[in-house]
Amino acid sequence: MTMADRAPALLDAEESRRQARARAERIARWALPLVMLLGTLWLWDRIVAWNEIPHYILPGPGRVWDSLTGDWAMLWEAALLTGKITLMALALAVAGGAGLAILFNQSKLLELSLYPYAVILQVTPVVSIAPLIFIYVESKTAGMLLCAWIVAFFPVLSSTTLGLNSVDHNLRDLFRIYGATRWQKLWLLQLPSALPYFLGGLKIAGGLSLIGAVVAELVAGTGGVGAGLAARIQEAGYRLNIARMFAALSMIAAMGVVIFAALSLLAHLLLRKWHDSAIKRET
């Protein structure tokens, strides 16, 4: 809708009220969280100052900021390492999860044999598997990837499986009448139908692969591959450098938000033309 289309509608009192409400909500969407953040930082700062809490117990936000800027080079390097493991694990989770979902969909035998073990792998806490992994897997990177993969692949697998099985029955009939082959049905019908489900699973897997990477770092320690953000948190903790712990933590949180936002954007771009979840209604 262009501004010219809108102009006459503005004359209508109710319409203009509705638009004012929409505008207020748009502003509130980013202004309120910002106010909340500033308020919390202020309160945090005041609590530390008023109670004279020593910085090795709770540093104020100013100190955390100083640590973030002062140790930037080190933290950035750590973030790159953690980010690399996270993204590689996510890529493997996508390949593994979607690949298994397709295999399960094509072969009932395979699904019946393997699905229970996928569930077991998912419900066993990765912290308890990780130490074993690092005994048997020699490469630190491979071990970390394996840990993160175990946590991240399942949402992709289960949501893609659901998507592949959720094809409209009428569309299946149509493909049947058109004499579509099994592969055509998979490529041209099931995979596009499963895409929205897959993307939903992917969003969850993005967060989980970061969690997996962090857990793996904590278990693996820093030897060999350098230290990621989680390892930096652990190390700073040993040194009672609480400000750096907070600084590294905030970077992990920021990384999680960036991954989520990127995957949401990807989902929106892929679905905006046709899927109900992403189409803007004109009315």
Binding site: D168, N170, L171, D173, L174, F175, I177, Y178, G179, A180, Q184, L188, L189, P192, L195, K273, W274, H275
Partner: peptide, 30 residues
């Protein structure tokens, strides 16, 4: 077999294909 076309109450269009892509579906599948 292969001599039947079908149309139902539900339009049975692929939501991810545009109009021409939908009309071309049969040829594409063959």
């Amino acid at each position: 077999s292969g001599r039947v076309a079908y149309m139902a109450q539900d339009d049975l269009l692929m939501p991810w294909l545009d109009l021409r892509g939908n009309v071309a579906l049969g040829a594409r599948l063959r």
